[in-house]
Design a protein around this nucleic acid. Structure first.
Length: 592
RNA sequence: GCGCCCGUAGCUCAGUUGGAUAGAGCAGCGGACUUCUAAUCCGCAGGUCACAGGUUCGAAUCCUGUCGGGCGUACCA
């Protein structure tokens, strides 16, 4: 029997967890396809493999001997209790909970959140922000060099709309009081005027009046944008006046979400580079003029990637290319991840293809970089259509957070003796962690690629598979530690030399041990295709194992090695759940 | 027209290079607090994995077709 070296990874991937514990802990399905290839009977091959595996020293140390193939040729293995105990010991004594750093750290740039600063943030912005934040935390924890960059939309047509509106229908008093709201009002108003959708206008007499008064509003808005881009002093001055106001607004929301960025370099930052990008693309023959505009024509696409409009203005493709080049030059990343709505996938395909071709010609940097569009589904309104920033249409992000904290606060207040000793400040802190955690978790636990209809009740649910479930499990661990006066340092000392004191006396303990030791493997899986819901599924599984364990077995009343084993399981599970939640950007209070 | 994505329990969804009896949560029904926090636990019920073929030891998963839905498709981002 001969197996080529490059076949081995593929075969190893055919080892997986069993669906049912009666089949052991892990199963290998490789005998069936391999037997077919070799023209032998699967069960015979499996038997031969088992014979050899059983003799292997490393295997013998960690696993119980395999008896015989099951069914068509499954090879089922069971971890030795002592090996499991040793795993617990190592993870428990490690500040990284037994998760090794990657052997070859990469420099990874993450581009996420990227709101339009002129528009109020609404619930549609939550996905990019929360998913990007979670992925960046996870990649860092694994040992990569992560650079996060919030690519603000601070230079586009939306500013032309605000400038146009500011000059014609601003409410000075309202601006003095709440500048962001006034700018938001102007944006929404002008957008309606520009779109001049009869249905919309019939519902908004002010917009309708403006539309009638300024029939050329669309052209004028574009002209305001163009003037800003050309450096017109008045528009430039207004832009500089509005920017800090807009920034302050979004920073406050990031603060509440616990989201931070290493850099915040908006579109405006790349503005001086745009003309050069177009020139470069044109002179290298990649872009050409067409119908007055300039675009890159790629094989396999119906429409070109436009980099300059007929009126001379640049487009977001231009900015994206300039940004890419800048990042490649200054950060030399191995990977750049764009956490952006799936509706832009074609745009990114074209941008990436252009960038690769372009980078190959100018210098080699771009071709070395792995460009990934981490797409996610759209957040839809109750009508099943994407949210739009209209009056009364989208739920504001801030309002969602407030509501989440308020609902959580109601539950925090209603408990019995468990909440003893919690003062009002503590309660507020717990309500924040639980309420905002619920919102983040609701989004992260959803498969990244599917759209979902936004629902207050669903996002703010606190029962079942929600953030509160994990937070609650940790609070129970802390309850045990407190009530029992457990000194974690002493506990760690007790097992620091060897793990033989750890013994499993109940299947629930063993199941919990297996679950808690999966953190490293799970993080690896999350990185493979950037799916935080892999993480939430496992966290729920872990917390669920713990809850069953907690309910059925007493920790503090146990004695001797049984007590030590259970305490170690509690300590490690609590710390692992906390770490896991924090990697998702969710806070975990000690008490709730 | 072309391209991409989707269709799984009453509802919301997991299920990812094909693995054993398709899983959770919510809603429903029945049980469990004098005990380390009941935001919990245990149990019951609930399915033609849109449909029809095909590939094979094995298909929700891969291929083909049909039906249904979403998104994108030249100067918004």
């Amino acid at each position: 029997m001969k197996i080529a070296l490059d076949e081995i990874p593929g075969l190893l991937e055919q080892v997986r967890e069993t669906a049912d514990s009666k089949f052991g802990d892990f199963t290998a399905t490789l005998a069936m396809p391999l037997a077919k290839k070799l023209g032998v009977k699967p069960r015979d091959l499996a038997s031969k493999l088992i014979l050899r595996i059983n003799q292997h020293q490393l295997f013998e140390k960690k696993f119980e001997p395999i008896s015989a193939p099951i069914g068509p040729g499954f090879i089922n293995v069971r971890v030795r209790d002592q090996a499991l105990a040793e795993g617990l010991r190592i993870a428990c004594l490690d500040s990284q909970l037994g998760v090794p750093k990657v052997t070859q750290p990469q420099t990874i740039v993450l581009d996420y959140s990227s709101p339009n600063v002129a528009k109020p943030m609404h619930v549609g912005h939550i996905r990019s922000t929360v998913i990007g934040d979670a992925i960046s935390r996870i990649l860092r924890f694994r040992g990569h060099i992560v650079i996060t960059d919030n690519h603000l939309g601070d230079w586009g047509t939306q500013f032309g709309m605000i400038l146009w509106g500011w000059k014609r229908c601003r409410d000075e008093t309202a601006y003095q009081e709440t500048p962001t709201q006034e700018l938001g009002r102007l944006y929404r108003l002008v957008r309606k005027v520009v779109d001049s959708d009869p249905k919309e206008l019939s519902q908004d007499p002010i917009a309708a009046g403006l539309a009638e008064k300024y029939p050329n509003a669309r052209r004028e808005v574009l002209a305001e944008t163009a003037k800003l881009h050309e450096g017109d002093s008045e528009n430039r001055r207004l832009w500089e006046q509005f920017m800090p106001v807009c920034r302050e607004e979004i920073e406050r929301i990031y603060g509440r979400l616990d989201v931070t960025f290493d850099h915040t370099m908006g579109e405006s930052f790349y503005q001086p580079l745009l003309a050069g990008v177009v020139k470069d693309l044109t002179s290298s023959g990649m872009a050409r003029e067409s119908r007055g505009a300039v675009g890159v024509f790629l094989d396999g696409y119906e429409s070109p990637l436009l980099v300059q409009k007929a009126d001379g203005a640049f487009l977001y493709a231009t900015t994206d290319l300039a940004t890419l080049a800048w990042r490649a030059e200054h950060w030399k990343p191995d990977r750049i991840l764009y956490i952006v709505d799936h509706r832009q996938s074609q745009h990114f395909q074209q941008v990436f293809a252009t960038a690769r071709a372009w980078g190959c010609r100018s210098d080699e940097q771009l071709s070395e970089t792995d460009l990934v569009h981490v797409a996610f589904g759209t957040v839809l309104g109750e009508d099943g259509k994407p949210f739009k920033t209209r009056v009364g249409d989208a739920v504001g992000l801030e309002a969602l957070l407030d509501e989440g904290v308020e609902r959580a606060g109601r539950v925090v207040g209603e408990g019995e003796q468990a909440r003893q000793g919690m003062n009002d400040a503590k309660r507020q802190e717990v309500a924040e962690a639980v309420g905002i955690g619920a919102i983040k978790y609701a989004d992260l636990s959803q498969n990244r690629t599917t759209d979902y209809v936004f629902s207050f009740d669903k996002m703010l649910e606190l029962k079942g598979n929600t953030a509160a479930y994990m937070q609650y499990a940790v609070a129970r661990v802390e309850g045990i530690v407190n009530r029992g006066g457990v000194d974690r340092k002493l506990l760690h000392q007790e097992i620091s030399k060897d793990s033989s004191i750890l013994k499993f006396s109940d299947p629930l303990e063993r199941r919990l041990a297996l679950a808690v030791l999966k953190l490293g493997a799970v993080l690896e899986d999350v990185e493979i295709d950037y799916r935080p819901n892999v993480m939430t599924s496992w966290l729920y599984e872990l917390a669920s194992c713990f809850s069953s364990f907690y309910d059925a077995l007493s920790v503090l009343k146990a004695e001797g090695s049984q007590r030590t084993t259970r305490l170690v399981l509690c300590d490690l599970t609590g710390r692992t759940l906390r770490q896991g939640m924090e990697l998702l950007g969710i806070r975990v209070p000690n008490q709730m």
